[in-house]
Amino acid sequence: MKDGPHIARIAALIGDSARAEVLTALMADRALTATELADIAGVTKQTISAHLAKLLDAGLIAVESQGRHRYFRLADRDVAHLLESLMNVAFRAGAVRLRASPREPALRRARMCYDHLAGEVGVQFYEALVRQGMLQATPQGAAITPAGAQWFAHVGIDTSTLAQQRRMVCRPCLDWSERRHHLGGALGAALLQRLFDGGWALRAQGSRVVHFTPKGELALRQWLGTHPDAPNSRAAQGPAPC
């Protein structure tokens, strides 16, 4: 007897090379036009229209119209989580690109994982939160400690408000390039937004890469305890409010 959802159709849609490039590009949680996606996928505008129609029909992407323009993005966080999981499996299985992009080192260092920070910096950030007692590892993943709630409030994040959302607050997300966890969930998204709002980090144009500003690099190193002038007490307090 055949039970459960039929995954073959979704797997076939994602398995197409051009559609996979489209979905990967949309992992930056930024809406793109069909023309931009055609350029990324290396196909014509007519071909990309057919691909986008299939992805829309399957509920993998969504579209928003503004005037004469249509902007495409991932349908929701569940799709983003599925894609990140596939990237983990692909990397572990050795299914990597034969020719790396010039952006590859920057992508591995810090990138968008839909709406939270991934890569080497994202992993260091999560591990520092656990090490300094802001988060506590649990069988379910992670939980905010009382000290953590105070620190997040200090940097402008109301964890009680996050807890009222339908979304999981803290979700450790396995990082495909580091093979360790970075912070996902509502808290991970809120932290990344604070980095952007405070001028610590910037999105790279047309990429998932996240660049840290000089101010952000210094503050991050001080908080992680890797700056030679950062005393332990200052590192434990965390960075200044954004």
Score class of each variant (00 low, 15 high):
34 A>R: 15
150 Q>C: 03
72 F>V: 04
54 K>W: 12
170 C>D: 05
218 L>Y: 12
224 L>Y: 11
86 L>G: 01
83 L>M: 13
93 A>I: 01
99 R>C: 08
204 A>G: 12
48 I>L: 02
47 T>H: 14
78 D>K: 02
82 L>V: 10
104 E>Q: 08
131 R>A: 15
103 R>M: 03
230 A>Q: 10
66 Q>T: 05
43 V>Y: 10
151 W>M: 08
130 V>T: 12
107 L>E: 09
197 D>I: 10
56 L>D: 07
9 R>G: 00
163 A>H: 06
195 L>N: 06
119 G>D: 11
104 E>M: 13
154 H>S: 11
94 G>T: 04
8 A>F: 13
172 P>I: 07
182 H>Q: 10
5 P>T: 00
64 E>C: 03
58 A>C: 05
122 G>C: 01
128 A>I: 02
218 L>C: 06
48 I>S: 04
29 D>C: 09
43 V>R: 14
211 H>E: 13
87 M>R: 15
113 C>A: 15
138 T>R: 15
115 D>K: 13
193 Q>P: 02
59 G>I: 09
211 H>K: 10
146 P>S: 02
69 H>K: 14
33 T>R: 09
232 N>M: 14
32 L>K: 06
97 R>F: 12
173 C>D: 15
64 E>Y: 11
4 G>F: 00
198 G>D: 00
27 M>V: 02
233 S>R: 14
40 I>V: 15
40 I>H: 15
220 L>C: 04
119 G>V: 06
189 A>P: 00
171 R>F: 13
92 R>I: 09
141 G>D: 01
85 S>V: 00
169 V>W: 09
229 D>R: 07
222 Q>D: 04
96 V>H: 10
178 E>A: 10
166 R>F: 06
209 V>M: 02
230 A>V: 02
235 A>F: 08
40 I>E: 05
210 V>Q: 03
40 I>R: 15
75 A>M: 11
69 H>S: 15
57 D>N: 14
98 L>T: 03
19 R>G: 01
1 M>T: 00
227 H>R: 07
12 A>M: 09
127 E>V: 08
214 P>E: 03
177 S>M: 09
95 A>M: 12
95 A>L: 15
175 D>A: 04
46 Q>P: 00
101 S>A: 05
15 G>I: 09
200 W>G: 03
96 V>C: 07
70 R>L: 11
154 H>N: 02
124 Q>F: 09
239 P>G: 05
114 Y>C: 02
209 V>R: 04
30 R>Q: 15
232 N>S: 13
63 V>W: 05
25 A>D: 04
113 C>M: 13
140 Q>F: 02
112 M>E: 04
157 I>K: 01
231 P>A: 10
48 I>R: 02
107 L>H: 03
59 G>E: 06
154 H>T: 06
239 P>D: 04
172 P>N: 06
75 A>R: 13
112 M>L: 11
84 E>L: 12
52 L>T: 09
56 L>W: 10
45 K>F: 14
